[in-house]
Amino acid sequence: MIQFLLKRIGVVIPTFLGITVLAFALIHMIPGDPVLVMLGERNIDPVYYREAMHRMGLDLPLWQQYVNYLGRLLHGDLGTSLISQTPVLEEFRALFPATLELSLAAMVFAVVFGLAAGIMAAVKRGTVVDHTVMGAALTGYSMPIFWWGLILIMLVSVHLGWTPVSGRLDIEYDIAPVTGLMLIDTLISGEPGAFASALEHLILPAIVLGTIPLAVIARMTRSAMLEVLREDYIRTARAKGLSRSRVILKHALRNALMPVVTVIGLQVGTMLAGAVLTETIFSWPGIGKWLIDAIGRRDYPVVQGGILLVASMIILVNLLVDLLYGVINPRIRHAR
């Protein structure tokens, strides 16, 4: 297991380096340069321009710039926002919990309902239940996030008035961030109604963000379950006299989980991309909205640092998924 772990972690390092190259190259591939953006692109004093370029190290050869960039990275310096003059990492840290909360809620929604729907469809294969679930999954998968978000806002928030339209919390509450996760912070604050308000704000964006992963998980669970249910060991489990639910949930699901966990891991990437749209639609103050705003303002350090951080998150999640394989499947744990 230790060997398996080390091997997986060993793969992460070159992947991370690759991303730093991409993030670094990005800023050099975009037309114009940061100094021009900072100085307003018009009527720039050439002397001052050269000075600024030198100050920022942009007059050095590319490889040297990259090495310097890597050096700063290793010291945890991701640069400073051109607009707010706050370190990128600091902004990220302040905003990430909002995205994390939204993504976690969306993932819980997607996994719980996706697994249940997939198992049901597989067990009731070929019946109305199966066709309904799979039809719904295909519809969910095909829906553009922004359209689905707007429809839900119109229906649930505007027409039915069940949930708020945007934000994370009603303005009457002032909750000091402890964990940054609003659900937990409101609980800690003990302020009556604050938790309910946070939950109301979270539900709709979580459903919107979780819809595509839910559809993907449901479809993958169904096909994996169908395959596993044909296996000899399922017959053995039934010949032991075990109940149907035990056969399905213990013997089949555990083996069907491998491809499903892979897909869940991959969906984290899709989700962070989806968060950009969802956060914009619901004015959710997370890194998706932060990145979109930064692109609009050509805040290069934020875009660069943000991409690096988001990519690191995805690498981390994929590492976790790899490790989870070993837990689920003993054959992987023992393979050399």
């Binding site: 000899d232 017959r235 489990a237 013997h251 555990r254 083996n255």
Partner: peptide, 13 residues
Amino acid sequence: FQDAQSSLNPAYT
């Protein structure tokens, strides 16, 4: 059964 190896669940001891 015939194929004992595939008749045992690979995920459990």
